[in-house]
């Protein structure tokens, strides 16, 4: 059972809640309580906009157990507009070609299930921006 492990992360998982450094204004995701840029304490919550662009991308065909039912699935590193990079699956790609630089936005989707009878795990993924901006 990984219930508590997932529960602990619900804020960042569901809604991309990170931190902002009160010293250098750096936006931090994933939250880590220490600013990676200036090394100072950074525990102030920060709600990311969810907007960003593809930094790199690929598609997984041979999945680890727990993800096998979802193949093939695209995975990207996304550059959030506030600065940080984040690794996440892409979803709802449709026929649009994904390229480095493609604008994407965060959506909350099912990441998997903790076994057949266990809890459902939800978290952020990204999709091509629904509306041009």
């Amino acid at each position: 059972m990984e219930t508590s492990q997932h529960w602990r992360l619900r804020k960042q998982r569901y809604a991309l809640v990170g931190e902002v450094c009160p010293h250098c204004e750096s936006k931090i995701f994933p939250p880590r309580d220490i600013c990676p840029d200036c090394g100072e304490d950074a525990r102030e919550m920060y709600q990311f906009s969810g907007r960003g662009e593809v930094y790199s991308h690929t598609t997984v065909y041979q999945a680890p157990s727990g993800h096998a039912e979802n193949v093939p699935y695209p995975v990207a590193i996304v550059r959030l507009e506030e600065g940080p990079l984040v690794t996440a699956q892409l979803t709802d790609v449709g026929d649009q070609p994904i390229e480095i630089g493609t604008p994407v936005e965060m959506v909350t989707r099912k990441l998997g299930a903790d076994g057949e009878r266990g809890m459902l795990v939800y978290g952020y993924k990204f999709r091509p921006a629904l509306v041009e901006r």
């Binding site: 709802d92 959506v107 989707r109 099912k110 990441l111 459902l120 939800y122 993924k125």
Partner: peptide, 9 residues
């Protein structure tokens, strides 16, 4: 729905 969607999402 896609594989990763349900009433919650």
């Amino acid at each position: 729905t896609g594989l990763d969607e349900d009433v919650i999402t």
